[in-house]
């Protein structure tokens, strides 16, 4: 009976591995090890990383919210079905938050990796505080996408 048990355990193990691979959930951004899906630059600044998880659970990494926005605009067939659109909370590096719920501060004082000066913050009060400190304007995710589409940079 020994080998039957072994086989059973083994197959269970692989099933588990398979299941782990298939669950649709955000994965931590591998800073320094992945290239931005949109601009191919290395994703390395852990205050700005962004992520898209498709409906099958496959993650796509981005080095900045603007790259995520560009990608979403260019690939509606993927983004419309995406399970998650995530950006990093600037005040908590490496922490991903949902793009829909984030507040985007566009300020010349905070240059983001791809030149759109977009900084995502989870907490609205914190975002307003930062706006007072650094100036610029506050945007929603829709506003941020709009800004990326029209290439509106603060000067």
């Amino acid at each position: 009976m020994l080998h039957k048990n072994t086989l059973y355990t083994l197959s269970l193990l692989f099933l588990l591995i398979g299941a782990a691979g298939c669950s649709v959930e955000p994965k931590p951004v591998p800073y320094g090890e992945a290239n931005c899906t949109h601009c191919q630059m290395t994703v390395s600044d852990n205050r700005y990383g962004a992520e898209l998880v498709n409906d099958k659970g496959k993650p796509f990494y981005f080095d900045a919210a603007e790259c995520l926005a560009s990608y979403v605009l260019e690939h509606p067939e993927i983004s419309d079905k995406a399970a998650y659109l995530l950006v990093t909370d600037f005040t908590q590096p490496s922490t991903l938050i949902e793009a829909d719920k984030a507040h985007f501060l566009q300020s010349t004082e905070l240059p983001s990796p791809m030149g759109m000066f977009l900084t995502a913050v989870a907490d609205e009060a914190r975002a307003k505080e930062m706006q007072e400190k650094y100036g610029g304007r506050l945007l929603t995710w829709e506003g941020a996408k709009q800004a990326v589409r029209n290439n509106e940079k603060p000067e």
Partner: peptide
Amino acid sequence: WGAASYGLLLK
């Protein structure tokens, strides 16, 4: 030489 490295990225 690394996971996300290249000699030259031309964009």
